[in-house]
Design a protein around this nucleic acid. Sequence first.
RNA 1: GCUCCCAUCGUCUAGUGGCCUAGGACACCACCCUCUCAAGGUGGCGGCACGGGUUCGAAUCCCGUUGGGAGUGCCA
Length: 467
Amino acid sequence: MSELPRYRFAPSPTGFFHVGGARTALYNWALTLRTGGTFVLRIEDTDESRNSPQWTQGIIDAMSWLGIDASHPQFEGPYFQSANADKHVAAAHQLYEQGAAYWCDMTSEQIQERAKETGKQGYDGFSRDRGLEPAPGRVLRFRVPEGATVVQDLVRGDVEFSNETIEDFVLLRGNGTPMFLLANVVDDIEMRITHVVRAEEHLPNTPKQQLIWSALGKSAPIWAHVPVLVNEQRKKLSKRRDKVALEQYREEGILADAMVNYLMTLGWAPAGDTEIVPWSQMVEEFRLENVNHSPAFFDVKKLTAFNGEYIRALSPELFVLACAPFLQQGPWPTDRFDAEVFDQVAPLVQTRVATLSEVPAMIDFFFLDEPAMDEAAWNKTMTVDFARDVVADFCEAVRDVDWSHDALKEHLEKWSTERELKLGKTQAPIRVAITGRTVGPPLFESIEILGRDETIKRLTTALSRMG
RNA sequence: GCUCCCAUCGUCUAGUGGCCUAGGACACCACCCUCUCAAGGUGGCGGCACGGGUUCGAAUCCCGUUGGGAGUGCCA
């Protein structure tokens, strides 16, 4: 009687959506899809000081961007942990009735003092046998039994903890509200969770949770602790130091598919010689047993490289579509933007950007009254000896040459050959005059799209500036 | 400090005792292509942390050392 697995993802709504959380969610989602099981989203909002409704919406939006769609039949939730507070408290009292928990009136100061006296760390179980009754201000502590607790972990194997190293932890706060450890277990039981796949930082919590499971008469779920994501200093990614907001990468023009693919390969790799594989293949191949054991560096460079691949793989139409939000932020007057022009230019920039946010700067000269002149580029290209001649000649030629990039190129090629100059050199002053930069989309195609009048205007302006 | 986890190119990884002279990807370098820049192509640089075992044979198993990391709250 093997039931379908029930996975869960249980973020706390403490801000934007963390890339580490995204990876954990993705692992759970991939497993859910392959096994035909269920993915439960539970918002862990028991700490009211951190709770904020807009963060919850942010989590759901971010997940849907990644393809974890809340309306998918295998998706369940969101549930809110705070809504189950009664059940958490009831479970706590049940544990007290059973003798698996006891009340304690010590303040953290008192605990510290005792620790100092005994020379040991943390709470020493002082109230264990004092037989205290419940009262305001008193916390309920779990009575950790003797022996050892073995956590069976799908990625790490068996991990044994001696119970002596686990202190009698708090179940209910002095104000009567439940703590994470308890709430988490009660909810997992309630929601019939069979697989807990979460970040490694939870591994030290696991024996405590497992103890609660068994005190409540249940057998623990299957655990799997995946390695944390770290920064270049090899420290766990933190929102203080590191760029961890999924939303931010989205705004910078990272494609969802690229993000998903990259995140999946942190700690795991698909079979074969390429890491760029479709989601369906990752769903098919992903196994917790194959997840690496050591922390993985979240490398934005590699993410960006993946993104470039995904951008290039887009059809021209989809690329144009993907660019749309970024085009609205362009540095040009909105009325000068021309979607038809962009459609023509798009294929020229598609192979030249690694993120969508790079697009506007690459094509701004099409929509600006005058190109945004890079002075360094001007100084570098307009001071060479032939600069004035080539711009002057081209400005003349452009008036009656056939309007095609081939003809434009042919003309400049001829001019260059006659003077034993390389086209690569002679195109530079023209490029700067037209676009304001030394690099950009192919010049002659750009000129063709820009149009004769605008081209003449820009070349003339450049000439007069050169004096 | 204590508990636990981890250790293959700079980075992400493949490798589950012989197929490993350790494979791929990102980054980097060179060359080719080329109207700039990209893209693409070709090639290169570069790694099993160290020391002991086990074994006919070890990147792979065991022990130790060293080095990283996580946790250590009336946070989640």
